[in-house]
Design a protein around this nucleic acid. Sequence first.
DNA 1: AAAAAAC
Length: 477
Amino acid sequence: MRRVATTNERFHLKQFNDLGLAEVLLRAVSAEGYTTPTPIQVEVIPAMLAGRDIVGIAQTGTGKTAAFVLPLLHNINQQRVVPGSKCCTTLILAPTRELAAQIAESIRTYGRFMRPSVAVIIGGAKPGPQIRAVAGGVDIIVATPGRLLDHMASGVIRLDRTTTVILDEGDQMLDLGFMPAIRRIMAKLPAKRQTMLLSATMPKQIRDLAHDFLNNPAEIAVAQVARPIERINQKVMHVDSTAKRGVLVDLLGGPQVERAIVFTRTKRGADKVSLHLQKAGLSTDAIHGNKSQSQRERTLAAFRSGRVTILVATDIAARGIDVDDVSHVVNYELPNVPEAYVHRIGRTARAGKNGVAISLCDHTERGMLRDIERLIGCSLNASGDLVPHVSMPQRSAATAGEPTGAKTGQKRNSHARNHRGKSAAAEPTRRSEAKPGNAAANAGLTRMLGTAGDKQKRRRSFAKSASGSSHGRAVFQ
DNA sequence: AAAAAAC
């Protein structure tokens, strides 16, 4: 058990200048217009400067990237890479190429006055420039696992003098799909090193696995684990699967929608939905893993610049991607891994802003919705009022992400499979289902898009639910 | 069964 100080005890009046960071970094922070660190930054930065291993959990959009980038730059400022060593001082691993590129961008921003050498090592890009970038040794490598292993196998990159490794979206990096690659990479790192794991979600099974790689980590959680950020107005529409496309067009045509991400469960689905939205005259493009890397980059750039206002994506864009002013996230299909819901909707309401998340749920998805509600500890509905689960008022790190029905030791993916469609029949239809072309439903759609009033109301109800439990207190385990 | 990640 470890109790972390409450927000008020610990974070009161803390400024960036109080955190022990080098002056070259404080200047860059100030140039970006920041003066006050977020709670995760207040906790993580000193711990990382002290050389601790860290498991850091904080809600989406609360500055996790800067929380590790600033102290790692500080440490590199003290200890630059040995020239010609084919090594890197710090290694950062991310689950998608786009996220790796975005982290590198953040490093360039905060490192602008100290000019660290940075190499982005990802698939889909030419290996030649990557090889040249690391040939003389590099301060920081930001990588996706596959290409890094390639370069390691061919002797282009060595990790035997790397002193710090960071797994961003750490729970996904240690999940089934990535674990073998991560183990192989970790095996090549020195035993004496600093290791850090960050995410907005951290299921217990994953956290247990993490201890293979961590040495007496500082466990830092500045919010109840897996709780979406409060500024997201979360709504669910129960719709027939055949009605989804029409409902989506009506939703996205609304004037409140400035910039939206629509998530689908499959790559083909993303293409189909995007095509349908295009035919309806909307400004949209799809991004998923079957597109070429250049297409992926172009599409994300167009969305970032505002040239495209609706991004249709698979879970390739669920984690970490930071685009300003995404007003709406629509789950066209619910994710079957409940943690993905928290990450998807976290693409909106970043850096203190508000956002709306609308999930379209058909009868085959009721079980997935129930898993999501269990994870976040609230029931979702069409009004956007979160109804807390009184039976489990405190979702701690120890239980968050562990579905109640899952057997001990059961693999996470098989759990997700078990819930697919299974509970659809068991759960009676409680809510009316919206159909396109129905006047009453369309009036409802306008409400779905969310107003400031809705958000105020919702926030009050959330605050109410939180009081009396562990409101304001940061708890881990 | 899906998505991501190496050619």
